[in-house]
Design a protein around this nucleic acid. Sequence first.
RNA 1: GGAGAGGUGGCCGAGUGGUCGAAGGCGCACGCCUGGAAAGCGUGUAUCCGUCACAAGCGGAUCAAGGGUUCGAAUCCCUUUCUCUCCGCCA
Length: 423
Amino acid sequence: MIDIQLVRDHSDEVIQRLKIRNFDAADIVNKLKEADMLRRQSQKELDDTLAEGNELARKIGELFKSGRGAEAAELKEQSATLKKQAKQLQEQLEVSAQEVDTLITQLPNLPHKSVPAGNSEADNLIVFEEGIVPESDDNALPHWELARKFDLIDFEAGTKITGSGFPVYMGKGARLQRALISFFLDQAVQAGYKEVQPPLLVNEASAYGTGQLPDKDGQMYYVGADKLYLIPTSEVPVTNILRDSILGEDELPVKYTAYSVCFRREAGSYGKDVRGLNRLHQFDKVEIVQVTNPEKSYQALDDMVAHVSGLLQKLELPYRITRLCGGDLGFASALTYDMEVFSAAQKRWLEVSSISNFETFQSQRMKLRYKTSTGKNVFAHTLNGSALALPRIMAALLENNQQPLGVNVPAVLRPYTGFDLIE
RNA sequence: GGAGAGGUGGCCGAGUGGUCGAAGGCGCACGCCUGGAAAGCGUGUAUCCGUCACAAGCGGAUCAAGGGUUCGAAUCCCUUUCUCUCCGCCA
């Protein structure tokens, strides 16, 4: 969530900046200011009443000790009324605090100054493009046909076992998948990220911490019997490792990488965009996460983009980088770069990574702070990015490297796959 | 899933109704001491909210979480949760 102090002091700026997202915050902000004022007023009244009660209790204690029971009894009556008052004020405070909370969690993060205005994907800014985009070849097979031809993925079996969007990787397909995971993890570790293996189910507090709740309830699979959510990305468990903690400044930046399976309900999606591996309910992903000083977070973001660029270069995939426009920006993000690879047969760009700086949006929610050298506790910045999401990388590798005899495996992966050609 | 024990500050650990945010120790920081260090000595060392200048000061809250008893609770009662031990089940 955004800093309440910003709403108090610079509400106009908050409203202005959220316009970049096409988000009209005026109403919420005004209500929020009012609720905040009410909350503070309630707090004050409650504190004063409690202070009075404490004072009274002290007096009664003294009277008891000096054996003046009668006087104490009188004061007890006062205490009873104070207590009733306090209880009322307490309830009032809870209501207004709840109101503040409800309102502030409705506000998305403030976009960074470099975020372009726009409504949709189409308005995203292409900031970089590299690699040779394969020439239009109408004989090129889409990956789902290659997958069938070489027995790499059994979509039908997945549908039978579970439902659509749960493919079964077979043979060299499974091996290629495992190779990619190992390659990505090794690369991340080499770049200084600590490898972690997180739980795949998280509780409500964790889902709230990274911003999936309350915003994206319904996009996650929910295990009602235990009140747990299947993770849509390992960002959730990994970032929450540091929930409710105060780090030393010398511990920053924290850099984690994790491989995990990810689950997304993707309710309502259909059509050719979801063919094959393009959009799944279950998929694999290697994630990188950083927690940094506020001053260093944008440098960290650039480093993460460079890291992912390096992966795509090593895989010899043509890619481009877009800066998301306000309308396409995720709820919690201040600035996001999407990485897209070109798939030769589908002849379109596929998003394979999304790298974001959340500034303090997540850390405010999960109370992730660090102690500055001056001894002050401040919220850290959190960032994360896919490095990388597997299915579309797999799709692009298959489509772009297809030959009459089979599919070539990029050189960097061969030590991991143990084969050069899928035939 | 069943039975029992327990969750106190960065850590260990006292504290069974009264001035306890909490003894003591360790750790850490600073100072003294030293050629330097160790030892020793001294001082300090939680978080959040409100007031206010996001200062000082003052007030409030926090001893797993929530509720209750009481003038007053870390201390008593209830619920939840987590950890440990034993049993059951199981990769």
